[in-house]
Nucleic acid binder design. Structure first.
Lengths: 345, 345
DNA sequence: GTGACTCGTGGAATCGATTACATCCCTCGG
DNA sequence: CCGAGGGATGTAATCGATTCCACGAGTCAC
């Protein structure tokens, strides 16, 4: 494969001049520029990004470590991150932590070794020493969706409290009083926050969230199933199950169906994180929708700001309730406009 | 950040010795080794992968260019690819082509510039000059799922013909005679092959596939919706719609529902590519399941074989029919075991 | 006319590793 | 006792780019 030396030789100039042309340095004669461009085209020369990175100490690459690629929420997040990064001239390397802290560390280490310019993380746990070290060492970092308290890193996330309140209002309005939640891991902020928001919203209606109605899940479908079975085994099962993410909601749906029960007649269901498929499930699932694409884009912008020397800001965007049929009320036609396909742009 | 020189200084040896220790070269005294290890731990030294890659001309990185990350089929494929690659000591950089040839080229170029060791591609189109050049230049490459005919590159894919035949048999057995298909882009192998398999299977039952029953989609939900509307507008609409991928099936479901019609009573639906959500849709969708994880793993093995000097083999695995309720027959309980959650290992 | 400046250019150092080659020191056989 | 052979180690070249510095030529002001 042709190198910069070959180009220099072909153009009859020095490598320095070739480099200057390639990097748009002003101080190059039009004639030399033309000859270099010609040689570049002729040889189909492409600069070696590895060598360039070594010299400049910049890779123009962002790392994105997410907790579970199979979760459509994170898939969409990853997609919007890549899009925005590309628009800003960066590539993205995605690491899938699969909700396992050691895998998360593996990816962080790997990305750091590759000298990525910055790191976007949705932490699986309360924060490994490795990640904390990286922050201390000055690695540009931004948390997205989840974060680690007490660490001085910008956070880009959705605030679901308003939407959770709306949800509880909706449920209360339908006459439901015994509400249960399938929580995420307490080590994650989204895991604990959603429970808190739910509890707070219940309190506004004078309702209490008993321990028996607080199941511990891990954001995976299987745990949703398990917890829901526990709920159904209770002497007095809840009237509504609120799953803290879409996968656990699916597990819950499974568990309910396996008992031969029906949603919403026998038990109602709602989920945090809206996904296109919820429109098509039986029944369509009422969910809290995050502005996922916007989160991804804002996170990239914050990270790139940090990388390029500007001051990044934390961003919090509101989530919103999307009412469908899984809690009992027929959805007013105008309230579930959520299209199956996001814009392709 | 500490470099190899710092380690050498701290350990009181030369950089060559440090490098030898790090790379497991035999000719190092136990004492020197210990001192180096100590210094490495002390300084928390991590070798700079960029510098290493420049020197060795190996990045231990694979590129994966897929057509659409939002499609759960490809998400799962990507996941299994990353898993197997990790097990073999490689990282993966994913490029999402979004079914757009120019985006695909962008990613291929980017990956090539980064000097990835090999490329896994599921081509969006018939093959850009860029990709062909890369093959000619000797870039290790393997096609997965889709491929480009006439190019000497190993292909790892599923053969759906048997399953399509089973599907047609199933439909025929249910009394359906007017069968339509929503095809994928003719430029993709999966786009044309599935139509051909369908047509061939119909022929076995003496059935013909009229042009009016062959809709042209693009593997995206919106096209499924559009084509299905066309079918429903026909003077004699089909009794069954077979979508060549899961997203178009979703669009079809939408279109049917928008008319106030019901699946399977008014029109039956089947899809190529099974995904966990099909268990939960209304009704559960009969689909052809590819051994996605196995495909991803086999593709990585083939690519790594090629990279490491062994001879890679093409692999074709059978797909299988998973009967659910969307075509009319109640599924025998044992026939839809497809679990909502794949194993996490 | 001459010193100051700018502009275009090339030579060479540099980034952080790997590795060929040279060197030194031991051991061992004859 | 000496030379061959081999193990441990260091010096320096190298990968392919970027960039500092020096230099020659041309321009301009005084």
């Amino acid at each position: 494969m042709a190198g910069i030396k070959d180009v220099a030789a072909a153009a009859g100039v020095s490598v320095a001049t070739v480099s200057r042309v390639l990097n748009g340095h002003p101080s190059v004669s039009a004639e030399a520029r033309a000859r270099v461009m010609g040689a570049v085209a002729e040889l189909e020369y492409r600069p070696n990004a590895v060598a360039r990175s070594l010299r400049t100490d910049q890779t123009h690459t962002l790392g994105l470590v997410i907790s579970d690629v199979l979760n459509p929420y994170f898939t969409e997040l990853a997609r919007s991150v890549e899009e925005e990064a590309r628009a800003l001239g960066y590539s993205v390397i995605i690491g899938n932590a699969d909700e396992r802290p050691e895998l998360q560390d593996h990816h962080v280490r790997n990305l750091l070794d590759r000298r990525i310019d910055g790191l976007l993380v949705s932490p699986t746990d309360g924060g490994s020493p490795l990640m904390l070290d990286a922050v201390r060492a000055g690695t540009p970092m931004v948390f997205v969706d989840r974060w680690i308290p007490g660490v001085d890193v910008p956070v880009v996330r959705a605030d679901g409290r308003g939407a959770v309140r709306d949800l509880v209002a909706h449920l209360h309005g339908l006459g439901h009083r015994r509400l249960a939640i399938i929580a995420g891991p307490a080590a994650t902020t989204t895991g604990s926050e959603r429970v808190e928001a739910f509890r707070a919203a219940l309190a506004e209606y004078g309702l209490h969230l008993p321990d028996a109605y607080t199941g511990q899940g891990d954001f995976q479908a299987e745990s949703g199933r398990r917890v829901t079975e526990g709920f159904l085994d209770l002497p007095e099962p809840p009237e509504v199950v609120f799953a803290a993410d879409n996968l656990m909601a699916l597990g819950a749906l499974d568990a309910v169906r396996a008992r031969g029960l029906r949603v919403p007649d026998d038990i109602a269901l709602a989920a945090f994180d809206d996904i296109p498929w919820f429109v098509h499930t039986d029944p369509p699932v009422t969910a809290i929708a995050q502005p996922t694409g916007e989160l991804g884009r804002a996170a990239v912008r914050a990270l790139v700001d940090r990388i390029e020397g500007r001051t990044p800001r934390s961003v919090t965007l509101p989530a919103r309730l999307v009412v469908r049929r899984s809690c009992g009320a027929p959805a007013p036609p105008t309230l579930s406009p959520s299209p199956v396909q996001r814009s392709t742009s």
